[in-house]
């Protein structure tokens, strides 16, 4: 730390001038370190599939993002990050709570989320699901079929051990 006791900040004139300029450019975010930290890499395939699966399963139950966060007792921020397919590995508790709230097999959901080694059947179903689903406001017939088929595989794999 340095001794700043005698230093002063920018002048009032500078502040007033810059305040006017800021009106047209309100955002100031700099994030170089996010890249160094790998906080902003592209989402992995697992994260994309997991995010899409949670979103479609939620919409099938006619829940808003906020309602699902409350029902699953998880942070709204965490749920938005998941559905936004952001490159963040979800916590085990979050995945477990979501599985319970959406009536999905928790063990298999861990695999889809990348928290456990995925079985080949789950991987294959996930890839097929990713290729067929698109993010839209309303669940289309194709999305519903894709979701149902993926969930069916997850349940079958669960039953089969």
């Amino acid at each position: 730390m340095t001794d700043n006791a005698k230093r002063s900040g920018p002048s009032r004139e500078w502040l007033l001038h810059i305040a006017d300029l800021e009106d047209a450019c309100p955002s100031v975010s700099v994030g170089g370190m996010a890249c160094d930290f790998d906080l902003l890499p592209a989402a992995s395939e697992a994260q994309r599939v997991f995010g899409r699966l949670i979103e479609l399963a939620r919409r099938k139950k006619n829940l808003t993002v906020e309602q699902l966060a409350v029902k699953a007792d998880i942070d709204l921020e965490d749920l938005v990050e998941i559905e936004n397919e952001e490159p963040i590995v979800p916590q085990v508790r979050t995945v477990f709570q979501l599985a319970h709230a959406l009536e999905l097999p928790a063990g298999r959901l861990m695999e889809v989320a990348g928290l456990a080694k995925a079985r080949p059947e789950v991987n294959q179903a996930a890839l097929k699901f990713a290729a067929r689903s698109e993010s839209t406001a309303k669940l289309t017939r194709e999305e519903k079929e894709a979701l149902d088929e993926f969930v069916k595989v997850l349940i079958e794999v669960s039953d089969g051990g």
């Binding site: 300029l21 047209a24 450019c25 309100p26 955002s27 100031v28 975010s29 700099v30 170089g32 890249c35």
Partner: peptide, 24 residues
């Protein structure tokens, strides 16, 4: 300036902040 770099600064701006660093 204190480091002897004469005010030279570099950074990577997020897209929404690009106008701020260029214009302000």
């Amino acid at each position: 300036e204190e480091e002897g770099f004469h005010g030279r600064v570099g950074l990577h701006a997020l897209p929404q902040a690009e106008p701020f660093y260029e214009k302000v």
